[in-house]
């Protein structure tokens, strides 16, 4: 489990994002592809890959992927 792997998993979960285009500092909520469907697919990814139940509020409360990852690991 690493931040780099989390960014890759996030890219895969949110379709319509170029692989390798996101970084730990990406503000994911500002992405064009960030919508209610992306919320679902990221929740499912975090549940399946990290065994963490991510609430929608947590996705709203964080801004960067690094911050989100810290919450997932928290």
């Amino acid at each position: 489990m690493s931040l780099e792997k989390f960014v890759e998993d996030f890219e895969e979960a949110v379709e319509d994002v170029e692989p390798g285009s996101l970084t730990a500092l990406t503000k994911y909520r500002e992405l064009e592809a960030w919508d209610s469907l992306a919320v679902l697919t990221v929740i499912a990814m975090v549940d399946a890959e990290y065994d963490v139940r991510l609430k929608a509020e947590m996705l709203k409360a964080n801004d960067t992927l690094e911050a989100l990852y810290a919450q997932v690991c928290g």
Binding site: S36, L40, I43, D47, R53, A56, L59
Partner: peptide, 24 residues
């Protein structure tokens, strides 16, 4: 905030929470 339009007499669904509920 997502641009969806509804009134209080329409069905509301918190999709993320319903999804979480379902898969757990």
């Amino acid at each position: 905030e997502a641009g969806n339009i509804r009134c209080q007499e329409n069905l509301f669904m918190d999709g993320a929470e319903i999804f979480n509920f379902s898969i757990v």
